[in-house]
Deep mutational scan, measured.
Amino acid sequence: VLKALERTRQLDIPDEKTMPVLMKLLEEAGGNWSYIKLDNYTALVDAIYSVED
């Protein structure tokens, strides 16, 4: 979780936006981090930006 938060902080995305999206992605992935961690957490960042749209 810390590495995911560090990555999104680099992009000026607050933890308050990151955590709900991260928890949803983890739930959808059955707790499997490998998809979320791919390409420096690209799936997480993309999911956060899609929620903002």
Results as ranks from 00 to 15, higher is better:
V1C: 14
V1Y: 12
V1Q: 06
L2T: 13
K3E: 15
K3L: 13
A4M: 03
L5E: 02
E6Y: 09
E6Q: 12
E6R: 07
R7D: 03
R7L: 08
R7T: 07
R7H: 08
R7F: 13
T8G: 02
T8A: 07
T8Y: 05
T8L: 09
R9H: 03
R9I: 02
R9L: 05
Q10I: 08
Q10M: 13
Q10A: 13
L11D: 03
L11R: 03
L11E: 07
D12H: 14
D12Q: 14
D12F: 12
I13K: 01
P14F: 05
D15H: 04
E16V: 09
E16T: 10
E16L: 07
K17D: 07
K17N: 06
K17H: 08
T18K: 02
T18Y: 03
P20H: 10
V21M: 07
V21S: 04
L22K: 00
M23A: 07
M23V: 08
M23L: 13
M23H: 07
K24V: 06
K24W: 09
K24D: 05
L25T: 01
L25I: 06
L25D: 00
L25K: 02
L26D: 01
L26W: 05
L26A: 01
L26P: 00
E27C: 12
E27N: 10
E27F: 10
E27V: 10
E27W: 11
E28K: 11
G30F: 09
G31R: 04
G31D: 07
N32Q: 08
N32T: 06
W33A: 01
W33M: 04
Y35H: 11
Y35C: 10
Y35T: 14
I36W: 03
K37V: 15
K37S: 15
L38F: 13
D39S: 08
N40D: 10
N40P: 01
N40Q: 07
Y41D: 01
T42A: 15
T42L: 13
A43K: 12
A43P: 12
A43V: 11
L44V: 05
L44H: 01
L44P: 00
V45F: 05
D46N: 15
D46A: 14
D46L: 15
A47I: 04
A47H: 06
I48L: 09
Y49H: 11
Y49Q: 11
Y49R: 14
S50P: 05
V51C: 10
V51D: 11
E52A: 13
D53L: 13
D53A: 15
